[in-house]
Simulated scan of single mutants.
Amino acid sequence: MIEPFVESDIPSFIALAREEGWVCGAWEFQFLLQNFPQGCLAWREEGKTLGYITSLRHENSGWIGNLLVTSEARRRGIGAKLMEGALDALLSSQEATVWLTASAKGVGLYRKLGFLPIDSINRWKGKGTSDPRAERLPHQDLQTMREVDRAGWGDRRDGLLDVTVGRGWSYCGEHSFLCCQPWEEGTQIGAWGALMETQAELLLDRALGGLLGPVFLDVPAGNLAAASLLTKRKFSIAGSNTLMYLGAQPSYDNKKIFALASMGSMG
């Protein structure tokens, strides 16, 4: 049966997610549980947890992520029931649009629930250039970040930006920003937004100059400028998912979104 996802579920979920090759951390679930606990659910039978789902509410939209069912419990409809529970939580909060990213296997399920594809999200991987002269600065000009992010997603996502900026460092330019987040696997770039390609490029080079080791980011496939910038810097695509939405058609402008703030789970 469906029960709340609680903090004690975090270690077991992370262990299961890493078996699937996902990038996720405890801070992410703590943020989700604090901000939208009613949309974070688990499926339990006889004291054993067999599935999980999380979701997050922004101002006029929501995001579903981290739907995961243990291998022995798949093909029993548990994922569909968890999805319905998360959707109920979001739609009862009057979200106009609900987002998610779907694997190739999941697209059919989500289509049946009414989700429509709008783009693909490519995971790019590369390396930093490690220039010792590069400087890391604390977050700057949150107002610019929020305005540029809203121009891309058509919604205010202040809580998500605040937590991702707070756990790493960021660079701001004219109508542009780029955040770097540390992970055990390397460094994530994102959120990264800009109104013009030239502005995005300046921040990318500044960020890569201060990084050593693996760098990864999730980028809308429709942002051809981002793909060009990354290809020139010897990044390559390591995987892809489908970006889908349910409800009101969003004011989505992928040309202004150079990287997502999360690795697929929060947008």
Rank of each mutant, 00 (worst) to 15 (best):
Asp131Ser: 15
Asp131Gly: 11
Pro132Leu: 15
Arg133Val: 01
Arg133Leu: 14
Ala134Arg: 06
Ala134Ser: 15
Glu135Val: 14
Arg136Ala: 01
Arg136Cys: 00
Pro138Glu: 09
His139Gly: 11
Leu142Tyr: 04
Leu142Lys: 03
Val148Lys: 00
Asp149Phe: 06
Asp149Leu: 12
Asp149Arg: 05
Ala151Gly: 15
Gly152Lys: 02
Trp153Lys: 07
Trp153Val: 12
Gly154Gln: 10
Gly154Arg: 06
Gly154Glu: 11
Asp155Cys: 13
Asp155Ala: 13
Arg157Phe: 13
Asp158Glu: 15
Gly159Thr: 08
Gly159Ile: 03
Val163Pro: 03
Val165Cys: 14
Gly166Trp: 00
Gly166Val: 07
Arg167Asp: 11
Trp169Cys: 06
Ser170Lys: 02
Tyr171Gly: 03
Gly173Tyr: 00
Glu174Asn: 09
Cys179Asn: 09
Cys179Lys: 00
Cys179Thr: 13
Cys180Pro: 07
Cys180Asn: 05
Gln181Met: 07
Gln181Ile: 10
Glu184Phe: 11
Glu184Ala: 13
Glu185Met: 10
Glu185Ile: 01
Gly186Trp: 10
Gly186Gln: 12
Thr187Ile: 12
Ile189Met: 09
Ile189Arg: 03
Gly190Trp: 03
Ala191Thr: 12
Ala191Pro: 15
Ala191Cys: 11
Trp192Gln: 04
Gly193Asn: 06
Gly193Lys: 01
Ala194Asn: 04
Leu195Ser: 06
Leu195Tyr: 05
Glu197Gly: 03
Thr198Leu: 03
Glu201Leu: 02
Leu203Gln: 00
Leu203Cys: 05
Leu204Asn: 06
Asp205Ala: 02
Asp205Asn: 14
Asp205Pro: 00
Ala207Arg: 00
Ala207Thr: 02
Gly209Pro: 02
Gly209Val: 04
Leu211Pro: 05
Leu212Glu: 14
Gly213Arg: 08
Gly213Asn: 10
Gly213Trp: 08
Val215Tyr: 02
Val215Leu: 07
Val215Asp: 04
